[in-house]
Amino acid sequence: MSSAAVVQKLVQRAKQAEEIIAQLKAQIENVKQVAAISVSKPEEKRLREENEKLKVKIDTLKTALIMCEIKNGVKQVPIPTKKLKMEPAGGDSASQPETKTAEVKPQVAKETKPKQEKKGKQEDANKKKGDADSGKGKKKDAAADADRPIDISRLDLRVGKIVGVKKHPDADSLYVEDVDLGEGQTRTIVSGLVKHVPIEEMQDRLAVFMCNLKAAKMRGILSQGMIMCASCPEKVEILLPPPGAQIGDRVFAKDYKGEPDALLNPKKKIWETIKPDLQTDGDKVAAYKGSQLFIDGKGPVVAPTRANTQIS
């Protein structure tokens, strides 16, 4: 056999060997994948369970960290949320068809003028009737509020952000705060916290506010609400909303859900009746008659350090 034939035969056998090796590698890879899937399923389940436990632990540590930071004077800055810009239901004004205005002849205008006057009188009559019905509705609502039991569900407690703060020009112990409560405009709230909370800790912080107190002047400035604090002779602490709380979030007591009064009637002494039963519990959670205050889906309202302390 010539040397050329021998070389050709060797080349063919080498190609066959390479093909066999490639097939074996593919088979080995398939076996590895099957084995990996059978092993990874229970491992994946175990990792998921551990992940859920870690999430709970992280949330607990976050709350503890926030409390420690506030205690040590670290300012808390809430994470901004995106507000979606809603388009009008009718769509873009450019897409609306143009309306042609017909030329009105003088005699037609004369004929329609009495009708227009009659229509205006009818609208005035309807408006007066609507105002009267609205007045009756308000009286009914006030009567319904008067018949309700006096408990914390009567208070409008909401999360707000202090967007501006300064000392009262005529009172050394008072702050004047501009508070965003998600109403489209800020409220002015006057608080006697100068001796208890540094002004830099007041700026840009979230807190819980009572929003349906009757507005009252404090040394010449109208206050439109009250910031809620755990208060005792030794110390006054601003209550902390839970992590993730947003401006405008409502605060409830677990066992006393209900719609608050639009405005508390000072003559009924509603706040004065509720106040003695409003305090932090042994875990520093704000509570009314033992029922903890919370925001749905976010957690309880707490004091940084004060347990079993009056809230006002």
Rank of each mutant, 00 (worst) to 15 (best):
A132Q: 13
A253N: 04
D180I: 13
V176I: 11
D204K: 02
K32F: 10
L293A: 12
Y175R: 04
S223A: 13
I66W: 06
D172P: 14
T112V: 05
P233M: 01
R306Y: 06
I295S: 05
M1P: 00
A109T: 14
D178C: 15
K121A: 11
V163W: 03
E123V: 15
I274Y: 06
T305R: 13
Q116I: 03
E52R: 06
K115P: 01
K85H: 14
A132K: 15
V190G: 02
S93L: 11
I70M: 08
E98Y: 05
K71L: 02
D131E: 02
P304N: 06
N72D: 06
A132V: 15
C229R: 07
G248S: 13
K217T: 07
G297T: 14
V34N: 05
N212A: 14
V285E: 12
N212K: 13
C68P: 05
A287G: 08
D141N: 09
L181K: 13
A35G: 00
K136G: 11
E183H: 13
E259Q: 12
I20F: 11
P106T: 13
Q8K: 13
D172K: 03
S153M: 03
K119H: 11
K115G: 01
D178Q: 12
S153Y: 05
I79D: 11
D133R: 11
P304Q: 05
A22N: 13
K284S: 11
V74S: 12
E50K: 00
L24K: 00
L54D: 09
L239V: 10
N30Q: 08
G91M: 14
I221A: 14
K119N: 09
P300L: 07
K75C: 02
A26Y: 08
D133H: 08
N308G: 10
K217H: 05
V176N: 09
M1Y: 04
I221M: 15
I227F: 01
K25H: 09
M218H: 11
D156F: 05
A262G: 11
A146G: 14
G297L: 09
V6I: 05
T60S: 06
V302Q: 02
